[in-house]
Design a protein around this nucleic acid. Structure first.
Lengths: 152, 152
DNA sequence: CCTGAAATTTACTCTGA
DNA sequence: TCAGAGTAAATTTCAGG
């Protein structure tokens, strides 16, 4: 049981990174090994934790989510308990796509999609700012957003 | 051919949003309709453009990508041609996970993963700052990053 | 660790309601 | 538009090199 991955494993991860719905057969064809080998490798990559899941990409605008923003958030305390609490609460807020815990000027960055400005207003005023350890929030509109995944 | 989606469609999108590798059968069981109906619906959702693709999630640290940063970038020009050029160039830079074109203080935000600080230095100095329309970059470390996908 | 083929499960198609 | 049954195709397992 080697810990290192060979180039075939990296190729599999790279393919799935950009298209998680590729079938075993298609992957096997692309990297030129047997289907059963591809199957084994994906199984092992999953078991060892290299592959963690897959997310579909949906057309947010078609679903009426017309406004996409980045919210930079500062807390007035950075205790571990507060951080954990915020992560838990923010994960449950409707509209949140992605959450970053930062080591810088802001404590958190939230990537959020909402229907309209009313919903955005509600999100910030009713959902976020009601948490008593929020010091400030800064909202910036996203004009365009592209998944690149150029890491392998 | 109705344009609106019913609650079953939304449920399908929501399930796939959080686990793109769910099979037809599993989805059919979860939302309690026939497999063939699930199949039809997914096909239509894809054809109509609601479902656009799927990305696998990989364990970056296990692959040696130990540093994750957010890079806020300002350009000294915002012409359409410059923006398009930057998006194209940035999409090809190794380490870029996601790219946001912003309507605010920064023009772009890049979510980047690299192996170590040397690679980060190379990324900023050799790859980014060599583009002549870059005015400034600000790098902030990501301590933690969570996909939430709480939009449906 | 890979291959190739068998066994099983799933996806896909179509008919009828 | 949905459900059920049949066919095609894929996944999964396994013995052998």
């Amino acid at each position: 049981m080697r810990n290192e991955l060979d180039s075939k494993d990296i190729q599999i991860l790279s393919l799935l990174l950009n298209n998680a719905r590729l079938s075993n057969k298609e992957i096997a064809a692309k990297i030129e090994i047997a289907q059963s080998s591809t199957h084994d490798r994906i199984k092992k990559l999953t078991q060892k934790g290299y592959l963690k899941g897959a997310f579909a990409q949906i057309d947010q605008k078609k679903l009426g989510l017309n406004i996409e923003v980045i919210l930079a958030i500062k807390l007035n305390k950075q205790h571990r308990a507060i951080i954990a609490d915020f992560i838990e609460k923010a994960s449950q807020l409707p509209g949140v796509i992605q959450l970053f815990h930062m080591a810088g000027n802001s404590d958190f960055i939230l990537h959020v999609a909402v229907k309209d400005s009313d919903e955005l207003r509600g999100f910030i005023l009713d959902r976020l700012s009601t948490l008593d350890y929020i010091q400030s929030t800064e909202t910036t509109m996203v004009l365009h957003n592209e998944r690149v995944n150029n890491i392998l």
